[in-house]
Simulated assay, not measured.
Amino acid sequence: MIETAVILAAGEGSRLRASAPYKPLCPVAGRPLIAHALEGLAEAGIRRAIVTLSYGRDAIEAYLASRSWPLHVETVLADHREPNGVSVLAATDALAGQDAVLAMCDHLVLPALYRRMATAGSGNGLRLGIDRRLGHPWVDPEDVTCVATNGSAIVAIGKGLEPHDAYDTGVFAISPRLGAALATLASPSLTEGVRMLAAENRAETVDCSDIDWIDVDDAAALAHAERWMSQAA
């Protein structure tokens, strides 16, 4: 089972600016998104989290330092002006060749999803948690990353992809092969890295359609997340 996680938390989060100056500190049901991620990962059995930061770094690091966390937390510097693959690469040295659970700070998920991906492992390159509940009311069809599959293999991935048969939940199990692929790109996006591994038959999926999650990327999604968390309490 994988015991290390990388949390991408470097983005600017402009669509949530009215709710919080920095997206990782945006509260949902009384806790910042970064706290939901760290505590959920710990509950799933993860022992170490590498958080990639850029926009709002000082404020987020101060928050992280102000709390005692149930897992070891460290930070690395990325660049929010660059594609998100740069954030993955920023964690490469800290990973030192280890596999990791890769998670998005703004994706609120149940710990069971993290646990499933940590248990599944990275396979021959990477595995992505997918949701086959197309048309789910929590999913923004204009913003979600779509996935086309053949069995468990990823055939294609991208926003606006047609046809598709699944959504990207934003939780991966990754090996150093992803970083190696991203390092060859002039402008490395995570999606492009997945495409590269898919072309080599090194990108698989894990069906997580039975586990709820939401990408808290704007005010509408934040409202959905608040209702979900209040009902789950």
Rank of each mutant, 00 (worst) to 15 (best):
R115M: 08
G135S: 13
S209G: 08
V147R: 01
L41R: 05
A18I: 10
R132C: 11
G193K: 09
A90G: 08
R81T: 15
V86Y: 06
C146E: 12
A91P: 05
A112G: 12
T169S: 09
A183W: 07
G30R: 06
R132S: 11
L95H: 04
H136S: 14
P27D: 06
N201H: 14
S152A: 13
H80Y: 15
A203R: 07
G135P: 09
E74R: 10
M117F: 09
V139G: 02
D218W: 06
T149S: 11
E192S: 11
T75N: 06
S122E: 02
M1Y: 06
G85W: 04
E61S: 08
G45Q: 02
G160K: 12
A9T: 07
V216T: 06
L8T: 10
N201L: 13
L161D: 04
Y167I: 07
M196F: 01
D212A: 08
R202A: 15
R177L: 15
Y55M: 03
I130N: 01
M196D: 05
R57S: 10
A120Y: 03
E200A: 12
C208A: 15
G30H: 07
P137M: 13
L128W: 00
G11N: 05
V6P: 03
L64W: 10
Q98G: 05
P24Q: 02
A9W: 04
H224S: 11
H136G: 12
G121M: 10
E192I: 02
V171S: 00
R17K: 15
A20L: 11
E61Q: 12
A91Q: 03
G121L: 11
I157K: 01
A103I: 07
R132N: 09
D215M: 01
L182C: 12
I211W: 02
G160H: 12
I46K: 03
R202Y: 00
R227K: 13
L190H: 06
C26N: 03
A62Y: 08
P111W: 05
L33M: 15
Y22Q: 01
A100S: 13
S87Q: 08
S54E: 08
P24F: 02
A221W: 04
P141E: 15
M117I: 08
S230L: 14
R127K: 15
V88I: 14
C208P: 07
I214R: 01
E61H: 04
R15G: 05
V51C: 10
S152N: 14
L182S: 09
E142Y: 09
L113Y: 02
Y55K: 09
S14M: 10
I174R: 03
H107A: 10
D143Q: 12
L89V: 04
L25T: 06
R195D: 05
L178A: 07
L110T: 13
A181M: 15
V73R: 01
A65C: 10
R17V: 13
D210T: 07
E3V: 09
I130A: 01
V73E: 01
L16C: 12
M1A: 13
